[in-house]
Design a protein around this nucleic acid. Sequence first.
RNA 1: CGCGGGGUAGAGCAGUGGUAGCUCGUCAGGCUCAUAACCUGAAGGUCGUGAGUUCGAAUCUCACCCCCGCAACCA
Length: 501
Amino acid sequence: MDKPKFYITTSILYSNAKPHIGFALELLQADAIARWKRLQGHDVYFLTGTDEHGVKVYDKAIEQGKAPQTWVDEVAESVQTLIQRLNISNTDLIRTTDQKRHWPTAQRVWEKLVANGDIEMGHYSGYYCVNDEAYITKTEAESLEYANKKVIQLEEDNYMFKLGKYQDRLTKILEQPTFILPTHRVKEMLNFVNAGLTDISFSRPKEKLSWGVPVPGDDSQVMYVWPDALTNYISAIGYVDNPAKFKKYWPADVHVIGKDILRFHALFWPAMLTSIGEVLPKQILVHGHILSDGQKMSKSFGNVVDPVELIDRWGVDAVRYYLLREIPTLGDGDYSAIRFEEIYNSALANDLGNLVSRILMMAEKYCGDKVPASVSSVSLNPSWGVYQNHMDGLELDAALQSVLTMVSEGNKYIDTTKPWELVKTQPDAVGNDLYQMLESLRQISIMLYPFLPTTSDRIRRQLGLEPINPDAFDFVKETQWGGLLEGHQLGQSEILFPKQN
RNA sequence: CGCGGGGUAGAGCAGUGGUAGCUCGUCAGGCUCAUAACCUGAAGGUCGUGAGUUCGAAUCUCACCCCCGCAACCA
């Protein structure tokens, strides 16, 4: 019995700096979706990676007195650290400097594009800053940053990709209803397309850009970012060296990206795939940017937030909760230390943590640490429908919120049923009420798994249950009411989220 | 100039024609199983501005103001 496959990717981190909180957000969104799909019985392939070529990466290495390869190795290492600290369940990590795994695909795609007449030698004309030795945009050239630097307009021979040729087809692709989330971004792209697409540079002269994938058949040119970076999504799954694997996983079910690189994923990438005769990814999930106390995060403002430091301070699941719940899945969000503490204390410590704590303490006191009998029908019903709709619609923030709503209902249920009074008058009824509470915690532990896997495990341990094994999870069975059996031995209770001041 | 998004209680947001909602925070009360947690209740908004359509508009139309993003080769 083959499981249905699910292929999800993040963008690849541009290696001119160590990973930032925005990349953490992207990893987490993809991780929550990947974990959810595994619970539902999918064979999930979850790819992330690093984009390690380009002038800026090269310059950054030189600036630090390091060989480019040494520098990108360090960045890749720090991505690995972030992945581990965030508890990301990726199955693979691709690096664009990987000459065995990645280069053959980038070059094969290039050759196909050439064979189809979609890449031809042409002229690039644009702005170039001599001081920075960097290509810049028109907007940048006119900005203050370059006012005192020497900016020239240059023309050079580049291989150009005939994007303009795909204008009509791209319009049709963009009009597919769920191709891009949120949908308003489709309009942005359509406007852009309708304004007319020009061809784009796919290579640079080697003397300007040496750190990159060589263009097949032309020693004087090196691939520019698009044909190099975008092809990571297929090189990792064996486009060249493992056709069976490629056939199994392509097309991607979801590309998770930031709004800053939508154009490349919504236009360049589909055009390239169309040209080489491959089907298109099914969906692009576009998240926003994280602001820091309402301001753009930037090194010059000194308000950059390091995700690893946050984990050190608050613990991994608190960071996961903040980024997945407080940052709107499809929009910009704000990071604020004050807000973080509020959220931690109210949602995690007071609502969720305290709920678990009070239920387990009562079970210990009133039921001898064993699951009591359930004598009535369900009276604390988990709303799987709401949760599942949000999950399937990739509304992660709303899905997580719905779990917290259940937590809140649990707290109300306790206050309404007052076990501490009932135990004096109707001990049987107490057992039944506690069954409702314990079983509802079991259900919550499942709902929490995609978002807060460690917390899910810890709740289950307290219930005397095994951690969730996503690859052998019977979704229908496990989400049915009544999984906890009478007489089952509960585990040791513990504080999930100590209150912080 | 243009295109897109947005302006709703102290903060963050939901709400697309019919008596303004949610979360956090604040204040008061209740409870004591619990991490001084939890539950209940209250205060707090002329829904950016002006005009129009309508029996009735946060919700539709028009004009205007403000914020953010995009505006072609920056990941």
